[in-house]
Design a protein around this nucleic acid. Structure first.
Lengths: 181, 181
DNA sequence: GTCATATATATGTGTAGTCATATATTAGAT
DNA sequence: ATCTAATATATGACTACACATATATATGAC
């Protein structure tokens, strides 16, 4: 359950509200490998409070709803560092509906298969373009802080992954076309 | 929910029991992009029966438990083909605990980060080796049936993906090493 | 003699994640 | 004047999936 540890990781940098975590942290930087639902962030913060890994203080606001600012505790920091050092030897499962479709594509007429492949290609090209637009300095930049280096590496993963998928799709489209002849 | 459609896809090729679906179909061919839990296969077969997409007949056995052989109905086939032709414009979410660790790796000492990367590299190299051992003819093989071509394409995705991940890990390890100097 | 494995189906229970919706107020857009 | 978006927290309800376990019998391994 990495949501817990992602939240601890963000709070270890800066105390924040659930709203900040969602809009400024998750949606801005880790969404492509750990998207987080707003409702689940709040519920996880409740659970972390019960466990003593975070605490909150109310910041009164007059014009807007009060802010419940969470900060990490010493126990929370210990738990974060324990998990951050734990090797992930089991690879995560990636379920892909599209690959299920492709697997059974012999039961479908070639034009439809071609259409499915094209839609995928379009979606991945758009995703790649999105990643490329993110203004993060490249890892080679002199004097770049460790924080940004690691963030950049995770973005590189996203870019590599989309590029690989696009290459594979183009290769597959060629093969499917030859099959139609 | 592609489990439903994967089951329909398999049953459209051949009537089978839940046990067969698990051991002969899922575990043998689509496990790397759609692993299926035994309990969930049986429950999904129940649901599909209620919906009228599959039907079952009992095959009595004396030495072993009776077999409940499922076959697809006409309604099931219609549903299968409807879904198989449906473009997947939304990309699936791939959650990666390891990338969460890497994102926060600036809070961890470099040796530990290096260890995490090495364990990942090892895991992905093993996975790649596993895929390469699967005896499926390459897409170029003359006279290869459409069924095998599409199965091969999905395996190619697995191989491409592991190769990309390994490349990215090696690149990242170099960068992390330079960071330590 | 005992233990593990294969064949075969089924239920109980828990968890992570999704989606909808409630509440309350301000600022800005049309 | 009215609608929408932003700020902020919270609950209800549902689904997919995971993990453990129950039942029953045969075969093969140590």
């Amino acid at each position: 359950m990495s949501l817990v540890h992602a939240i601890l990781g963000f709070l270890n940098k800066l105390p924040m509200t659930g709203y900040d975590l969602k809009t400024e942290s998750f949606d801005q930087s880790v969404a492509h490998f750990w998207p987080a639902d707003q409702a689940q962030i709040y519920r996880t913060l409740d659970k972390l409070t019960e466990q003593g890994f975070v605490e909150s203080t109310i910041e009164v606001q007059t014009d807007r709803p009060n802010r419940k600012v969470y900060h990490i505790t010493e126990a929370g920091r210990t738990e974060l560092f324990r998990w951050l050092a734990l090797p992930q030897s089991e690879l995560p499962i990636h379920r892909e509906p599209f690959l299920v479709q492709l697997f059974f594509a012999d039961q479908v007429d070639p034009k439809t298969v071609f259409k499915l492949l094209e839609v995928q290609l379009d979606a991945h090209e758009k995703q790649l373009a999105k990643y490329r637009e993110i203004p993060l300095p490249s890892v080679g930049t002199p004097g770049l802080s460790r924080e940004f280096v690691f963030e950049r590496l995770t973005l590189n993963m996203g870019i590599h992954n989309e590029q690989m998928y696009i290459d594979w799709l183009k290769e597959s489209i060629k093969i499917v076309q030859q099959l139609g002849e």
